[in-house]
Design a protein around this nucleic acid. Structure first.
Lengths: 355, 355
DNA sequence: GGTGTTGCTCGAATCGATTCGACCCCGCTG
DNA sequence: CAGCGGGGTCGAATCGATTCGAGCAACACC
């Protein structure tokens, strides 16, 4: 039987080889299966391994030699907790995991900007490839790091230059579609509730459109402004119902300046805005229309059904995984843009007559 | 400036050392800072590194030598997608990430049982430690693997033997508390809707209590049976609202055999059961009482407020991280049990008089 | 019997960095 | 002036496995 030998050094493949009376190379081959081995030798090695309590090659050593660690880093620009809370990210992760597993790779969760300074960073983690999610300025910094290290990288939702494959969305187009829908319904006084404008953003009115450093925010905003050039924008501090609520309260505070429609850049924000509208005694969509973005299921929003843009989140993750796979094979990975589908719910309606 | 040299082999620390005219050891020390280095040398090395486009030591090589990879594996017993969907797991992950980051470690997502067979497993990933979440039979298998490899391991919600530190919950106690609450309200005909009994479980009535291989399920069930020894159990196939719904439909199908109370082993299941009750034309809690477990926020459940047991999910994660930290330091990590808090909502009430 | 395959097995180099003891030079002290 | 201490550098061993070409035995075929 195997002995624990907890005091002693772990057995190495050389130990096993010696015990089995073969060379280390042969022993290695028994485990990797890269070369045919006679059944007898195989047995001897396996038995020796069992005897010594050897459980297979040390991944660290193996990855050094092979130059592959089987680890794909997923870089978030925010705290992991908030990433998990975002249904879109969750779906993307899922798609990504799907696509990456067959490669024999695992997903390592990484933060863009480690607060402690001691965390595992892009520089210290043994990555085969990296997937950057989001688009803050910090991300651009990470990108430089990763590229310098020569690690293949894919960016989801963010512009990283032409040499980096990118998984994107037709944000501007899609948002314009929703805005046009509102315009067709007669709306003219519209406010946009946007995602954060910068990574360190505190919620508030956006004075200067050019201050938007986050790609998604900028693109969606551009789409809205294409249709409503004069729309004011209130930028939230994150994609949460609570943030939408806070934004909505501010927006609906002054009865004289109330918009007849609100374009929210995410479904969660939209849900919060709707809640704020209810608080303010406004009916949706009779008094105010609200559009979202993402097409996720927002629990607790019933009986409302958001008018929103449905994005293929899981597919985005899967595509990123495929891109990683390609790059790992040495093939170039293409940039892919997905398109959103406009879905009309019951949160938008004709502009109120009283307007 | 740095040159890309994309065709050439990546520069190594030896290259840098040569370029700087120092020994590899000195160059290494410049990057690790383990030993004082004169400012002049430091400059020369850094300049040489910049010149060669060297971005720091290769993590693979470093981890081989140091014996540390800075990676903590988190092993789920299910598909990642379902793990992310479970609010309790999400919270745990969050706590875990919190506790593990200061160690300079990252979280590697791993599945217990890779379907493709080629995925990264406990055997092939360079782990410093592992956290096993859940408690299926498969998990026990993984546990053996990990222990054989000599990787420190912590188990959350599952029994792994005395030599493995464990983060647990007073499941039985807590569930008994909820059951007692129902009993005090006069309920006698009670059905339990349980979490899966085994990892490959299909939903259905549980004929044999001893068939339960999952620790959490077993413990909570025991707590319920302590109070209602004759209660029937319908085991779901996962902790989802839909599963609760399916279970509820089955349970409420036959008017003659309807229970007056349902003990669900998770809040999500409870939410589904409530929905099923509504479908069946039953009012909660007037016609049927329902209890949950977890104390999470179930969106869309309003106006119901579950009578449930609130568990400190984030703390569990954090505790697991702390245990990992301790073991990495070579100190023994203690098993910790957290306790749930009973919270009475509006989904339980006196047994209906008609009974 | 000679020669060409086929099928395993072995040696030795290599992956890239870290570490530890030895060593050297310089300044300070007695 | 000799001895001592210490900051800074260097050499060489080591971490554990993989890989590839060479070597070798057995077998088959002519």
């Amino acid at each position: 039987m195997s002995r624990q030998d907890s005091g002693t050094r772990r057995a190495t493949i050389s130990d096993v080889a010696r015990e089995a009376g073969v060379s280390p190379s042969t022993a290695s081959v028994v485990f990797s299966g890269k070369t045919p081995v006679s059944e007898a030798t195989r047995r001897r090695v396996l038995d020796a391994a069992a005897e010594l309590g050897y459980t297979g090659p040390d991944p660290r050593a193996a990855s050094l030699r092979r130059g592959r660690s089987g680890i794909v880093g997923v870089v978030f620009e925010e705290h992991l907790r908030t990433a998990f809370l975002d249904p879109v990210k969750t779906l993307m992760m899922d798609g990504l995991a799907d696509a990456v597993t067959p490669l024999g790779a695992g997903l390592l969760l990484l933060r863009d900007h480690e607060p402690t300074g001691s965390g595992p960073s892009l520089t210290t983690a043994p990555l085969d490839a990296a997937v950057l999610i989001g688009c803050s300025g910090l991300l651009r910094e990470s990108l430089a790091t990763v590229k310098a290290r020569g690690v293949p990288v894919v960016v989801i939702e963010g512009d990283a230059g032409d040499d980096v494959p990118r998984i994107g969305l037709d944000n501007r187009e899609a948002q314009r579609q929703a805005a046009s829908h509102l315009r067709a319904l007669g709306h003219r006084r519209v406010v946009v509730v946007s995602l954060p404008a910068r990574s360190d953003w505190e919620r508030g009115w956006l004075r200067d459109d050019t201050a938007v450093a986050v790609d998604v925010t900028r693109d969606r905003l551009a789409g809205a402004l294409d249709v409503f050039p004069d729309a004011a924008t209130y930028a939230a501090a994150g994609s949460f119902i609570d943030e939408g609520l806070a934004a909505g309260r501010e927006i609906f505070a002054d009865p004289d300046r109330r918009p007849t429609a609100v374009i929210a850049q995410s479904d969660l924000l939209a849900a919060g805005v709707i809640r704020a509208a209810e608080e303010a005694g406004l009916r949706v969509p009779e008094d105010v229309s609200v559009t979202g973005f993402d097409g996720i299921v927002v629990d607790g929003l019933a009986p409302y059904e958001l008018t929103t843009l449905v994005q293929p989140a899981t597919d985005k993750g899967r595509a990123a995984g495929a891109a990683v796979a390609a790059m790992l094979e040495g093939e170039p990975a293409a940039t892919i843009f997905f398109t959103c589908t406009f879905r009309e719910g019951n949160t938008t309606g004709p502009v109120p007559a009283a307007d």
